[in-house]
Design a protein around this nucleic acid. Structure first.
Lengths: 262, 262
DNA sequence: CGGCAGTTTGATCATGTTCAATCACAGTGG
DNA sequence: CCACTGTGATTGAACATGATCAAACTGCCG
């Protein structure tokens, strides 16, 4: 059973810990994206907006359904019919898949700008759970298809997003198939750093809103092994664990070496 | 070092073993696909053809460069600039990635109809090697982009291929992250069966043109572990190893159970 | 026949898992 | 205010799965 309260506490603390914490959703709802000054885009930019000309944005607006999901709650349940796609605008989401006996594989962590729905299946094969309070924009699949039919740029954008995800998935296959526990954890820390750089947080102090168990299920390890790897990196002065969910990357070049990516 | 001669021998034997062995490339070069009666499509159907109206096929024809690669030879070297995409029309190709110290992860095996080039990177991050003699159609990336720019159906087809690959990659992440050795091997056999069903070989006797080492590097195991898993499945009467590279699936339901997919 | 590449099988080893105890921290209630 | 509780993290010890090392086997080709 998840513990929404604790998750929310973690989220709040993590949020506080960020130097320039962005305005949360309720305030941002009426604000406009810098590129288009439009309603559909959020502060952090809704990735589909980039693909649309100003004149087409109102159509996107009309098919957009905003949702807020509290930390610990479920956005999508494994097996749900795939009737909509979803764009995260704030928060962190965990995508995971279960084997019949309860073994879990976390397929990925989603941050603002990330998209759910790049699949040809007619049901979701993973569940999506909010790790922190999460805002997203949902689009009925048929609406999105209608819109993309006469929007080559939107179609192109979807294609590019799928390709990017594929690149990331292949990177993860290499990690899961061939890397040692320490290499996996080092790679993970660098991946999170990379994501947070893209978000504009340009420090070497990274926020990990997910639990050690989540990280373990993402890396194909147990939470104990993840914890031991963190400890070892700390002992070797490569990282500093400021708080459980806040890690300072003291020596990124070293971390790069340890990640196995030459 | 690869052993081209042996690979070729394996391929020939495997080919002979198929009941309805299709005509190899040299003869098929002038033949036309059933759907369009066109030059670009091969007997086994070139996936891009499906997306094009008859009138547009000549444009595809003009940018198509056919290649034959002998077994054991390299189509793409890791690090090569991504200047072209590639559609396999016959044969089997291995996509693999190396870690600096030589550990190898096989990202996938490609069969007729499969496509290389669904990425946003400007260099190939994997190498592609022909396991058997292989025919493919190459397209300069800029030509393909020009063509897809005013062909929404082609753009859509590329998007769908990327999504399919993504679904497959996520399946593989679950396998690599959470399945036991035996479950991985069982899943692999069923995957190959599924692929060969799609190719029209509707028997429970599957052909494995790749070596045990290739399979191991695909499943994140060692070749010894793969071999032992095969032996165990044989002992338990779930499969019969007719020849090294030909396996009879005696009990598919059982294999399904053993694969971990409930 | 001998050599070679690939496979199979056995014995030993090591990495990461499992089981278990303790710690840390926040929230809660007497 | 402080003990009590619950969740998650850390650390230790024993264990197991799969890796590594090694030898024998198979089939093909020269």
């Amino acid at each position: 059973m998840p513990a929404p309260d604790l998750y929310r506490a973690r989220m709040k603390a993590a949020s506080r810990a960020r130097t320039n914490s962005p305005a949360p959703f309720p305030q941002a709802a009426g604000s406009n994206c810098s590129a288009h000054n439009c309603h559909s885009c959020d502060v952090r930019s809704l990735s589909l907006c980039d693909a649309l000309a100003d004149s087409e944005l109102s159509r996107l607006d009309r098919i957009t359904r905003r949702h807020r999901t509290p930390a610990g709650a479920t956005l999508i349940r494994e097996g749900d019919p795939m009737t909509f796609a979803c764009n995260i605008t704030s928060g962190t989401v965990r995508l995971s898949r279960l084997l019949h006996d309860g073994r879990r594989q976390v397929m990925g962590f989603l941050f603002p700008g990330d998209f759910i729905g790049l699949t040809r299946r007619n049901r979701f094969v993973f569940s999506a759970e909010a790790i922190t309070d999460t805002d997203c924009c949902n689009f009925a699949l048929e609406d999105l298809e209608t819109l993309s039919k006469d929007n080559p740029r939107l179609q192109r954008k979807l294609y590019e997003m799928a390709c990017s995800e594929l690149d990331a998935a292949q990177e993860q296959m290499l990690l899961l198939g061939r890397k040692s526990a320490l290499e996996r954890v080092a790679s993970f820390l660098l991946e999170v750093r990379q994501r947070q750089l893209q978000q504009g947080d340009d420090e070497d102090c990274i926020i990990l809103p997910m639990t050690r168990g989540d990280i373990a299920d993402y890396l194909g390890l147990t939470l104990e092994t993840v914890s031991r790897s963190f400890s070892r990196l700390r002992q070797e002065q490569v990282i500093e664990i400021c708080e459980t969910y806040r890690v300072d990357l003291l020596d990124c070049p070293r971390l790069q070496d340890l990640s196995g990516n030459s």
